[in-house]
Each structure stands twice: as C-alpha cells, then as structure tokens.
Amino acid sequence: RTVKALYDYKAKRSDELSFCRGALIHNVSKEPGGWWKGDYGTRIQQYFPSNYVEDI
C-alpha cells in the first residue's frame, strides 16, 4: 500500500517520518490512534499522521 503526502511534515520524535508534500510513502500499515507506519527514503516503518496523506 502506498500513500501520497498532502502536506509537509517534520518529525517530532526519532520514530517518526519527515516528508514533504507530494512524497510517496510505501509499505503503509494502518495503526490505531491516527498514526500509521510506512517507508520513506532510508526510514523504514516509521510513524506518520494519517491525516497528512491520501491513498493513491
């Protein structure tokens, strides 16, 4: 599953992803609480806010 970032996001913790608008995040798994995990660049299975992305 791949999603596309709608907005920039700067990680606030070491287990979160930072990305820019338009970024493609791969291998996404839905987690409870509005935070999902995914791969972006060299960061593997890190958290990001689900309301910052859309399915593609």
Rank of each mutant, 00 (worst) to 15 (best):
K30Y: 14
G38C: 03
T42F: 10
Y7G: 06
I25F: 04
W35E: 09
I44F: 09
A23K: 03
A11R: 03
R1L: 15
N51T: 13
S18N: 04
T2C: 07
E31M: 13
S50L: 03
L24D: 02
R13S: 12
S14Y: 07
R21S: 08
R1M: 12
R13P: 03
E31T: 15
Q45R: 01
D8R: 05
A11L: 00
Y40H: 14
N27E: 10
P32C: 08
G38E: 04
P32S: 13
G22S: 03
F48N: 05
N27L: 00
T2N: 04
A5Y: 01
D15P: 01
H26D: 10
R21N: 12
S50M: 15
W35Q: 08
L6I: 15
R13Q: 07
G34Y: 10
T42K: 09
G41P: 00
W35M: 09
V28M: 00
Y47I: 04
N51W: 13
K37D: 05
K10V: 15
Q45Y: 03
S50P: 09
P32E: 15
Y7R: 15
R43A: 14
D39W: 02
E31R: 10
I44W: 06
H26A: 11
W36F: 07
R21V: 11
R43M: 13
S14F: 14
Y52F: 14
D15K: 05
S50K: 15
V53C: 07
K10P: 05
K12S: 08
R13L: 04
Y52R: 07
K4F: 06
V53H: 00
R1W: 15
Y52T: 14
Y7A: 14
K4Y: 14
K37T: 07
Y52A: 12
Y9P: 03
Y40M: 07
K30C: 12
K12L: 10
K30P: 15
H26P: 00
Y47G: 04
S14D: 12
G34C: 08
G33A: 04
D55L: 05
G34T: 14
Q45K: 05
A23M: 05
E54R: 11
D8G: 12
Y7N: 06
Q45S: 05
F19I: 06
I44E: 11
L17D: 06
L17M: 14
R21C: 11
H26G: 05
R21K: 08
V53R: 02
D55F: 09
G38T: 02
R43C: 11
D15M: 15
A5T: 09
R1G: 07
E16Q: 10
A11S: 06
Q45L: 01
Y40A: 07
L24F: 08
D39P: 02
N27D: 11
A11Q: 10
L24Y: 14
G41M: 08
R43F: 06
K12I: 06
K12N: 10
Q45D: 03
K4I: 14
C20G: 12
L24M: 09
Y9W: 09
K10N: 13
T2S: 12
E16K: 02
G33V: 02
D8E: 10
K10F: 07
Y47V: 07
E31F: 14
F19G: 04
C20A: 14
P32Q: 14
R43Q: 13
G33L: 06
D55W: 10
H26L: 12
E16H: 09
W35N: 11
L6G: 03
W36L: 11
K4T: 07
R43P: 01
Y40G: 02
K12Y: 05
G41Q: 09
C20K: 13
T42G: 15
D55S: 09
P32A: 14
Y52N: 04
D15L: 06
N27C: 03
S18R: 01
L24N: 09
A5E: 01
K30D: 09
I25P: 01
E54C: 09
S29K: 08
Q45V: 01
Y9H: 10
G41I: 04
D8W: 04
Q46E: 03
D39S: 02
H26I: 12
R21L: 02
S18E: 14
D39R: 00
K4Q: 10
G33W: 08
G41R: 09
K10R: 13
N27M: 03
K37M: 04
T42M: 13
I44H: 14
D55G: 07
R43N: 15
A5S: 05
E54M: 07
G22N: 06
R13M: 13
G22F: 02
S50T: 06
Y9A: 00
V28S: 02
A11M: 05
V53N: 00
R43D: 08
L6H: 02
S14C: 11
Q46M: 14
K10I: 07
K4W: 06
N51I: 06
S18L: 00
D15R: 05
K30L: 10
W35P: 04
D39I: 00
G38L: 00
G33P: 03
P32D: 12
F48P: 01
Q46Y: 09
D15E: 14
E16Y: 04
K4V: 14
L6N: 08
Y52I: 12
I25M: 01
K37I: 07
R13V: 05
R43S: 09
S18M: 00
Y9E: 01
W36M: 11
K4A: 08
L24V: 13
G41A: 08
Q45W: 01
A23R: 03
G34R: 12
K4E: 09
R13G: 07
K37C: 07
L6W: 01
F48W: 02
G38I: 02
N51G: 13
V53S: 04
E31K: 11
Y9S: 01
P32R: 10
K4R: 09
Q45I: 03
R21F: 09
L6T: 10
Y7V: 09
Q45F: 00
W35C: 05
W35A: 06
K30I: 15
A23E: 13
S50V: 07
A5I: 01
C20E: 15
S14I: 14
A11V: 00
E16S: 04
E54S: 07
Y52E: 00
Y52V: 13
T42W: 10
Y40T: 08
K12Q: 12
E31S: 13
T42C: 09
K10W: 07
A11C: 02
N51A: 13
F19V: 01
Q46R: 10
D15V: 13
N51M: 09
N51F: 06
G41S: 04
A23Y: 12
D15Q: 09
K37G: 01
Y40R: 05
Y47M: 06
K10L: 06
Q46S: 14
A5G: 01
D39A: 00
S14Q: 14
Y9F: 03
S14H: 11
K12D: 09
F19S: 01
F48S: 01
D55H: 09
Y47C: 06
S14V: 10
H26F: 14
D8K: 08
V53K: 00
R43H: 14
K30N: 10
N27P: 02
H26E: 13
R21M: 07
D39N: 06
C20L: 11
D55M: 15
